[in-house]
Design a protein around this nucleic acid. Structure first.
Lengths: 215, 215
DNA sequence: CCGAGGGTGGTACCGCGGTACCACCCTCGG
DNA sequence: CCGAGGGTGGTACCGCGGTACCACCCTCGG
């Protein structure tokens, strides 16, 4: 276990909390990122409690280096700020968790245990946003983009469906089969889609659909 | 608060746990998805505790409908299985949380509180995988993919150039003009590219190029 | 020196894609 | 009630895309 924070009082608080746990062995301390990276390499702690805002190398960069070093250490970022930017950066840097310092001790301890076991934890307030983004990426974008690109908003619902099908690489015949239409109808729809979005052929429609994230 | 589970004993357990909370008011119960959807519409509970495996309409579908109905109800999925499939489906269906039934009561309660407040919770064991996928999606694809996809490495330099040109939506004639080739030659190259990457037509080649980040 | 493989070019042929029309039905708002 | 617009379906026609061949040249390694 390694506690990284530039404020001594804060380190002291964590230390007290951690030493109350039966399973926690030694606790190392570091006051800034560079020291954290060095001590993580020496002590090889299971878990590193990492503050973000620190003079010199910040917690994000320190996390990146510790994770990149390939050791078994897992980093749990603890910060007073619930800013999205920080959380994102921390998670991209390879942190196994992101909690707020104002979490109750029980939550904090549960989080530490989870990270020690190889799981991950994220503060509930952040989980919602993360989930939001995640599902946004999974599900096809909706009305938001339609407003962004005037060409898309010209399309009727049916035409939009057809465009997405074209974007998936389906032939007119396949689209006809899946939508239970005649191929003529599909051709008509595709033709109108091409005209409206200003595409020369369905290939440019595919590119258009990809660029707008429809597929 | 609405508890949805096909096992009466399980519902009883949750009920006992929930009624011990000061902030919890009434608790409704449903034994299958259809009843859950109906009761959610009537009772308008803050939180719905949803089991996945149930006879008839399962928890995923019930979640989808409750969320789609636009009410204020938030769904916390509770299941004995930590299978990725379930979790993904549940989250895509719009669930605000996904916890395992074997979580300790304190975690469960914390999860319910978080969801009631509009936050989201995910079981630590799942968070790790979700994070993994999330960060995988965030980072841009680069040269690594060339090595990753064996189909790309089969292409000669010329064929790769052609593939990229196809991905830009150029016709054979345009490619011929820009590369100062005959259209026949372009056709030959395109044909070989399609064969090597296993594409039916140039449209699927375009999609292939996009998916690999070539364009 | 020779063979393999990549790059180029050609011919012949078919089919799907795309355009240009037209027509009919349904729904909905003026 | 009627007209507009969306959805559907059809015919006719052309051209590009794709396949199946074949051929020739160049480079490079055995």
């Amino acid at each position: 276990m390694l506690v990284v924070d530039d404020q001594e009082l804060q380190r002291y608080g964590f230390r007290m909390l951690l030493e109350s746990l039966p399973e926690t062995e030694a606790v190392g301390e570091a006051a800034h990122g560079a020291a954290a990276v060095r001590m993580a390499a020496e002590l090889r702690p299971d878990v590193v409690l990492m503050d973000i805002r620190m003079p010199g190398m910040d917690g994000i960069e320190a996390t990146r280096r510790i994770v990149a070093s390939g050791g078994r250490s897992r980093v749990l970022v603890l910060t007073t700020f619930d800013l999205d930017e920080y959380a994102h950066s921390a998670l991209r840097a390879g942190a196994s968790g992101f909690l707020l310092k104002d979490a109750r001790p029980a939550e904090l301890l549960a989080g530490i245990r989870a990270v020690a076991q190889g799981d991950a934890v994220i503060a509930p307030a952040l989980t919602r946003r993360l989930l939001q983004e995640f599902t946004d990426q999974l599900r096809p974008r909706r009305t938001t983009d339609s407003a962004e690109d005037p060409r898309l908003s010209q399309l009727t619902d049916r035409e939009r469906e057809i465009l997405i099908a074209v974007g998936k690489g389906w032939t007119n015949g396949e689209i006809a089969a899946r939508f239970v239409l005649s191929e003529s109808t599909v051709k008509t729809h595709v033709g109108r889609v091409l005209a409206k979005i200003g595409a020369r052929d369905r290939i440019q429609a595919v590119i258009f659909a990809y660029d707008l994230g429809l597929v």
